[in-house]
Amino acid sequence: MTGRFADSILWRYRYFILTSIQSDFRARVARSRLGLVWIVIAPLSQVVIYAFVLSSLMTQRLPGIDTPFAYSIYLMAGFQGWFLFIEIVNRCLTIFIDNGNALKKISFPRMALPVIAVGAAILNNLIFFVLVVAAYLLVGYHPGWSLLWFPVLLIVTSALAAGLGLVLGVLNVFMRDVGQLVAILLQFGFWLTPVVYTIDILPPLFQDVVRLNPMFWMIDNYHRVLAYGEAPNLISLTAIAAGAVALLGLALVLFRKASGEMVDVL
C-alpha cells in the first residue's frame, strides 16, 4: 500500500518533476556561452587524457576490439557507466542539504527530489551516449545489436547509484563528514574499477580484491555491450540489480524515519 501511495504521489507531481529536470538542464546550458558543449567537454577531456597517456600500453591488451582506436573505444564504454554512477551518487549525497530551504518552505513530496536528481543525471548521460555512438561510427566501429542492452545497464546503474547515494545523503545531513569521506572513497573506487585498465594487468591477489567491487561487474558489462559487442553477463547484472533494490529499500526506510528530523537539522 505504501509503495502504491508513493507512486500515486509521484505521478500526481510528474509535471513538477519533469519541469524541474528541464530547469536543471537549461540552467547548466544557459549559464555559459558554449552551453551544451560544456556538458560534453568535461567527460570527453578525461577520455582524451587517458587515451593519450595509456593508449600505446593498453591497446595490445584488447585483442577483441579490431581497430587502431581499441583503447579509446574501451575507455568511452567504461566512462559511460562510471560518469552516470558518480553523478547520481554525488547529486544524492547533497540533495537534502542543497534543498534545505525548499524542504522547509515549499509543500511538495520529498521523494520527488531523488527522482529529479536521477532524471537530470540520466539526461546528461544520454547526451554523452550519443557522443560515444557518434565517435564509434566516426572511427568505423559498430557495436551492433548489443546496444539494445544499453537501457538495461542505464536502469541498473541508476538504481544502484541512487540507492547508495540516498543512504549516504540521509547520513550526510546528520554527519557532514560523510560527504568528505565519500569524495575520497570515490577516488579509490575509480581505481578499483577497471575503467582505464583491464583487470588482467593486475596481480592475481589484486584481481580478487577488485572483483569484490560491485562496480567492477557493472563496468565489465558496459565494456561487453559497448566495446566488445556482446551481451552482458546476466548473472552479475541480476546480482547487482538485486543489490540495487536492497539499497533503495534501505534508503526509503532511512528517509522515512529521518525525514522529520532532517528538516529540523537543515
Rank of each mutant, 00 (worst) to 15 (best):
S158A: 15
T2E: 09
Y50A: 00
L93M: 11
K105C: 00
P203D: 06
L234V: 14
F69N: 09
C92Q: 05
L212S: 04
A241T: 08
M218N: 00
L226C: 07
G260V: 11
A27H: 08
E261G: 00
W82P: 02
M262Q: 08
P143K: 03
H223S: 14
D208K: 15
I88G: 05
R28K: 13
I21P: 02
I39W: 11
M58P: 02
I39P: 01
L248G: 05
V195C: 02
L171S: 09
A70L: 04
V152H: 07
W191N: 12
L93Y: 06
S158W: 05
L113P: 00
P109G: 10
Y74W: 13
F5L: 12
I73F: 03
L54D: 03
S158F: 11
G229V: 12
V139H: 11
L153F: 06
V196Q: 02
V132F: 06
L250Q: 02
Q207V: 15
Y71D: 02
L93R: 01
I116T: 01
R4T: 13
L148S: 14
L247R: 10
M215V: 00
R26G: 03
S23G: 07
M58T: 00
L44Y: 00
L171H: 08
G165W: 04
K105I: 14
L103F: 15
L34I: 11
P151Y: 08
R4S: 10
A161G: 04
I155D: 07
T94F: 11
R224L: 13
S32Q: 13
V263M: 10
A134M: 14
